[in-house]
Design a protein around this nucleic acid. Structure first.
Lengths: 158, 158
DNA sequence: TCCTTTCAGTTGCGATATGAAACCTAATAA
DNA sequence: TTATTAGGTTTCATATCGCAACTGAAAGGA
């Protein structure tokens, strides 16, 4: 396989493209942020985010389809529908938080509101960082991209 | 200020919307992933990502405008242009990695290639996690969203 | 020198996605 | 019974996307 073919395969297969298929559309992240902040109903999302109703309807549908939100009718009021995060959805929190921290640092220039705190110490959570398997913080120059097969060969050779 | 007004302000001000203004368009993340993986030239991005040339041109321009990529002419060959990440761009690595890890876990179902390893131990980096200020891993039920002003009052009261 | 290729775009144009506003239906509230 | 609320759907104008062809400057080769 040529270097070019290898690269193309790499890019087609990456987890990032897979993730973006599902949450890469214009409003998806903002809807998820809303869900993390306690929004549950169509009208809540609509008025708080200022999103068009048809787009919201479409996006909620897609997120439900992909198992990121669960859609439950409210048994007490049969007009109401509740959207809530599944485990798959909750597992997007690191993405949301690193995006948010980056935006705070480089774009808006100040911490946003509300703050996510440790429930017991009441202190804001730490900045998201890249860590080694044994928990040291890594910067880009401590890391290297390695082809998986080559890494296996390295390991076998050692 | 009413609860509704409060929420609207929260959503307008959040670091996530700020970040998405800059990197929220369809191809931006994939272009950045390419940059992190060593792509530098227009043709490289175009053939490896399979993106339309006009869109690529537009996105590269935007990323440069926002200071995420730097655009330098190649002094050795004056046709060539080099795009490389700035510090602001490199600081998006946690976002890219958490998105990638989520995609691997929940969508593609397997680790992507290439792997980002610790240069010295040759071990793949750890999963991105949310941590407390003192470095404990936190799950969603250990955390709470708190209004910044209320948090200040709590702190003052203690 | 002339001819060809490469690089980094731009242009034209049809297909798709987005957004605002009005409309719809079922269920509840007055 | 009438009004209001919740959660959408429809309509239509506008904006963005993506393919393919084209451009223009610079390099390379004969």
């Amino acid at each position: 396989m040529s270097r070019a073919e290898q690269l193309r395969e790499v890019f087609a297969d990456c987890g990032i493209s897979a993730a973006l298929e599902v949450v890469g559309e214009r409003w998806s992240f903002l809807i998820l942020r809303g869900a993390f902040n306690g929004l549950r109903h169509f009208e809540e999302f609509q008025t708080n985010l200022g999103i068009a109703r048809n787009i919201l309807s479409n996006r909620l549908g897609r997120l439900v389809e992909h198992g990121i939100l669960r859609r439950d009718p409210d048994p007490a009021d049969r007009r109401k529908v509740t959207y809530r995060l599944t485990e798959k959805g909750r597992d997007l929190l690191p993405v949301l938080l690193s995006l948010r921290q980056w935006g705070e640092r480089w774009i808006s220039g100040h911490p946003s509101n509300p703050v996510l705190v440790d429930r017991y110490t009441r202190k804001p959570i730490a900045p998201m960082i890249v860590q080694s398997a044994d928990g040291r913080e890594l910067s880009l120059r401590d890391m290297e991209w390695v082809d998986r097969d080559e890494l296996d060969r390295e390991t076998a050779a050692a």
